[in-house]
């Protein structure tokens, strides 16, 4: 009887350990949208999670990558289509538009004014804070290639890597929270 119980306890311990190791106190987020308001929401959630001592991994893909462009930098060796894409897409987070009520840029300018008044941090400030908090930014290589973005035209961010979907899947699988914005 005693050994039977011991065996059951050992089994349970092994299962609990497996569960503990299975998910980390980690937030994994796909940042897909290039809308200013959605990127802002993503950054607020990300920095908030970091304040909760969670490990945060952001996977930037498609339109969101525009937010990581440095307006002062240019990519080299682009073909005609890549140059066109580069011209038409926002050059950095300051150029992003609102998803609603943009009204030819008027709405975005207005919301930025309101954000200043309410002392809501700008995306640029949030990015800096994110870097200080150790938040990882992973950029989807496939999207970079599609849009003709080059690594050298991205902002200086301390924890930035170019990667593929496997990185996101691995991170997401072990995260307690997964989001898509």
């Amino acid at each position: 009887m005693g050994t039977e119980l011991e065996k059951q306890i050992a089994d349970l311990k092994a299962q609990v350990n497996h569960l503990k190791e299975g998910t980390k106190d980690q937030l994994s987020m796909v940042v897909f949208s290039g809308d200013m308001d959605k990127i802002l929401a993503a950054m607020i959630i990300a920095t908030g999670a970091a304040a909760f001592d969670m490990k945060v991994k952001l996977f930037f893909t498609f339109w969101a990558i525009s937010a990581l462009r440095d307006p002062a930098k240019t990519g080299k060796g682009k073909n005609f289509i890549e140059k066109m894409f580069g011209m038409m897409l926002p050059r950095g987070s300051a150029k992003l538009k609102l998803s609603n009520m943009n009204m030819g840029g008027m709405g975005t300018a207005m919301i930025k004014g309101i954000m200043k008044k309410h002392k809501v941090a700008s995306i640029e400030e949030m990015m800096k804070t994110a870097g200080e908090l150790g938040i990882e930014i992973n950029i989807c290589e496939m999207s970079m290639n599609l849009m003709g973005f080059k690594k050298e035209e991205m902002i200086n961010y301390p924890h930035m890597t170019i990667c593929g979907v496997a990185t996101f899947l691995t991170d997401a699988a072990e995260s307690k929270i997964q989001l898509f914005i």
């Binding site: 920095t47 908030g48 304040a51 309410h118 002392k119 809501v120 804070t129 908090l133």
Partner: peptide, 11 residues
């Protein structure tokens, strides 16, 4: 400061 300012300041 607005959310998440106070939280980040506390952290």
């Amino acid at each position: 400061t607005a959310c998440p300012g106070p939280l980040l300041a506390a952290k």
